[in-house]
Nucleic acid binder design. Structure first.
Length: 413
RNA sequence: CGGGAAAUAGCUCAGCUUGGUAGAGCGCUUGGUUUGGGACCAAGAUGUCGCAGGUUCGAAUCCUGUUUUCCCGACCA
């Protein structure tokens, strides 16, 4: 009997619109579907990964004392006028009117809303500091969306805001979040570099970017070979081979994807928006803010860009959509298929995430799709299944092992 | 927003120069043969040729406008 276990609409032909490898894989492998320029549906496979990335982010932020909330994507003009960004943000801000002809925008970021929330509920130093974050769909009407999820007009972002009574406390939070970001990037299996950056629209004094290193990155970074200096070229342009400004090492260049950006905002929003608190000395002071972003959907692409080899994918354990991919060679309603089905149920009941290829496709089709899906373990249920033997492939080390079904039930994946 | 390319079946594309019944491969449906790296045979279904005007007896094809998508640039957490 046909089981509908997963909707993974893979393609045979290469989608014409994709230029970079990770984008090709996402389309060909049935991960995402384009809706408009820079707007995509996350199909089940991609959404499973997105949720895992989100949860890693949640764990690391909750651990340092942040609280998750969810703010509206649809925002009225008023707060944006208060902050001065209704004018300053320009055409990148998605603007619309409601039926009463009132102005709204779709949030590209949430400094205004969060500032208003905190402003109305916190007036005393006794209630600070506060750290609030959300994971939400953001909207930016980019001049030129491109490379699939790399630069979308609608994308998933984690944005965190901290509210402190002093710059010293902001520094403490900044460093805690910085470390949380390091943990997140490490858990995602990424090669990255932290660089000094310009703070652009968001504002504030200093900021650092977490750049995932890869050739298709839109940013160029300069760094010293000793690792003691790194900057985005938008801030600091140095020739390759030049001495590093810190006097240690030689300058090198690399391309990177901006996956995270952390800012010390200071009072950029609290002053115009009148976010103040009463301090111990009974004086009214502006709250000192920080803000910290991670591009969740962009990270999906960044991880993929670093974890594929010639259209063959191997997701890191931390975000893999499934741990085990069972591929029966026999068609539905055969002995081998029934054995595979039973094995699937057993592994599921043991708590493993298992994908079962329930299609009556030829082996080549199944193997090619499996390469795109990128599970670490593949269990091939073939001719020897009736003798109690299946093949276990470990894609991480390319080990192929003929193993008894009884042993696989007890195998520690 | 400047420059370039493109839009025809679910996907990849041909047809357009020189106007005359809408095509191929893959995918899909049915039957059969296959089955360890994108199998084979047979039969079938699938289209507002992006949209709107214009020229013409007749437009996927020529003309005008428009929308959309991709690439390069500028811009940008």
């Amino acid at each position: 009997m046909k089981q509908s276990l997963m909707f993974v609409p893979t393609m045979r032909d290469m989608p014409k619109d994709a230029e970079i490898v990770s984008h090709k894989i996402l389309l060909k492998g049935g991960y995402i579907k384009q809706h408009a320029a820079g707007v995509y549906s996350y199909l089940p496979l991609a959404y499973k990964i997105i949720k895992k990335i989100e949860n890693i982010v949640r764990e690391e932020l909750d651990k340092i004392g942040c609280s998750e909330l969810l703010m509206p994507a649809l925002q009225s003009k008023d707060l944006w006028v208060e902050s001065g960004r209704w004018e300053a943000y320009g055409k990148e801000l998605m603007r619309l009117k409601d039926r009463h002809d009132r102005d709204f925008c779709l949030g590209p970021t949430h400094e205004e809303v969060i500032t208003a929330i905190v402003r109305d509920s916190i007036t005393s130093y006794k209630k600070l500091p506060v750290a609030l974050y959300q994971i939400q769909t953001k909207f930016r009407d980019e001049f030129r969306p491109r490379f699939g999820l790399m630069r979308g007009r609608e994308f998933i972002m984690k944005d965190l805001y901290t509210f402190s009574t002093s710059t010293e406390d902001l520094d403490i939070w900044y460093n805690k979040v910085r470390q949380a970001y390091i943990n997140i990037m490490d858990r995602l299996g990424l090669h990255y570099r932290i660089v000094n950056a310009a703070s652009g629209q968001i504002g504030g004094k200093s900021s650092e970017e977490f750049m995932v290193l890869c050739d298709i990155g839109e940013d160029t970074i300069v760094y010293s070979d000793t690792g003691t200096f790194a900057s985005n070229t938008e801030l600091c342009q140095l020739e390759e081979g030049a001495p590093s400004p810190d006097g240690i090492g030689i300058i090198k260049h690399a391309k990177g994807i901006e996956a995270g950006h952390i800012f010390k905002l200071g009072t950029k929003y609290s002053e115009p928006m009148n976010l103040t608190f009463i301090d111990e000395d009974n004086k009214k002071k502006p709250v000192i803010m920080g803000c910290y972003g991670i591009g969740i959907s962009r990270l999906l692409m960044a991880v993929l860009e670093q974890h594929n080899n010639d259209l063959k994918v191997l997701w890191p354990d931390s975000v893999a959509p499934f741990k085990i991919h069972i591929i029966p060679m026999d068609k539905v309603n055969t002995a081998g298929y029934e054995i595979a089905t039973t094995l699937y149920s057993q592994l599921i009941s043991k708590g493993y995430e298992v994908l079962f290829d329930d299609r009556s496709e030829s082996p080549g089709v199944k193997f090619n799709d499996a390469d795109l899906i990128g599970c670490k373990y593949q269990i091939i249920v073939g001719k020897k299944a009736v003798e109690g033997i299946v093949e276990l492939r470990n894609k991480a080390n390319n080990e192929i092992l003929e193993i008894e079904i009884e042993k696989i039930q007890k195998y520690s994946f």
